[in-house]
């Protein structure tokens, strides 16, 4: 009896080991494809490494189409590894949507959280540096100040409708990389979330190097920028993975990502960094956003722990 039990345990260990190896291999294929294709795209489209601010609006958007490669890599990896294309449920691509069991709440959160995060982030930035707040800024820009109060609504709307690019990223990172990382770490979440955030941040490196997120005029450029981006991605990744895990779909994450990119903040219209040291402005803005993300991520982890025992 004991002998059979021991054989069963050994088989289980061997099976888990083989499964982990297969998952690792799949993850590496995905990351190879994703980094390879995206970086190739970034370099092919912008071979002269023109700085982000010097690019035309359309060229910047065209380079941003590189956001579609994570989901393309996800699909290609599934084709290569023959994992199948289940759209919803366990071990699926999580492209499907379900509103059962109050899952619509996560879609609402995906719309509202970016507003809260960006508004709170801007508020912290103003608290750190009061000079940033300029109530007369809309007049200076010759813009009707009421437009800024519409900005969150406009950002939500354009974010939801034009979420395809964000779906491109989330379909890959949240739809493939995170589940694989979590599986590899035996269901534990802390380390996969940190590793996932770092990978996601590094993936942005070519863009950070041309000044996409933080510009180019700061000490330690571009390495510090890459580190800042990794830290941002870790915290943002916690919230996005939380939404994906609990809704069973990548769509809330895609919507949240898209709305965040559209900057759903009314305060931003009253923030004028003219006359503020650019490095200080960068630190204050980034710091404010990080604190805001930290608060929301902590709340997500708290809820997550209550829901799932494996955290």
């Amino acid at each position: 009896m004991r002998k059979t039990e021991s054989i069963n345990n050994n088989t289980k260990i061997i099976n888990t080991d083989t499964a982990a190896k297969a998952d690792l291999k799949r993850l590496l294929i995905y990351l190879g494809l994703c980094f390879g294709m995206t970086w190739l795209w970034f370099f092919a489209v912008n071979p002269k490494f023109t700085r982000w601010n010097d690019l035309s609006r359309y060229m910047a958007s065209f380079i941003s189409l590189g956001m579609l490669f994570p989901v393309i890599s996800h699909v290609l990896t599934r084709l290569i590894t023959k994992e199948g294309f289940k759209v919803y449920g366990k071990d699926s691509a999580m492209f499907g949507i379900s509103f059962k069991d109050r899952k619509w709440i996560y879609f609402m959160l995906a719309i509202l959280l970016p507003c809260l995060i960006t508004e709170l982030g801007n508020l912290f930035a103003i608290l750190f540096c009061g000079q940033l707040f300029d109530p007369g800024y809309p007049k200076e820009l010759d813009v009707d100040f009421r437009i800024f109060f519409l900005q969150p609504l406009a950002a939500i709307f354009t974010g939801v409708v034009g979420s395809f690019a964000a779906f491109g990223e989330e379909g890959g990172w949240r739809g493939y990389m995170m589940p694989k990382l979590m599986k590899l770490f035996g269901g534990k979440k802390t380390l996969p979330l940190i590793i996932g955030g770092i990978i996601w941040g590094l993936w942005h490196a070519p863009l950070t190097c041309i000044g996409h997120n933080f510009g180019t005029d700061y000490p330690g450029f571009p390495f510090l920028g890459i580190l800042m981006m990794c830290a941002f991605c870790i915290l943002m990744g916690v919230i996005l993975t939380f939404l994906t895990e609990l809704s069973g779909s990548v769509w809330p994450a895609a919507i949240m990502h898209a709305v965040t990119n559209a900057q759903p903040s009314a305060l931003i219209g009253f923030m004028n960094d003219t006359g503020v040291d650019p490095v200080k402005a960068l630190w204050v803005n980034w710091g404010g956003m990080m604190i805001s993300l930290l608060i929301v991520a902590a709340v997500c982890i708290f809820i997550w722990r209550k829901n799932k025992t494996t955290f």
């Binding site: 035309s56 609006r57 359309y58 060229m59 958007s61 065209f62 189409l65 409708v161 034009g162 395809f164």
Partner: peptide, 18 residues
């Protein structure tokens, strides 16, 4: 939704190299 997304891709591509 897919056609709207493709429309965005087409206009961005047209504008980027003009």
């Amino acid at each position: 939704y897919i056609f709207f997304s493709l429309g965005m891709v087409w206009t961005i591509t047209a504008g980027a190299f003009s």
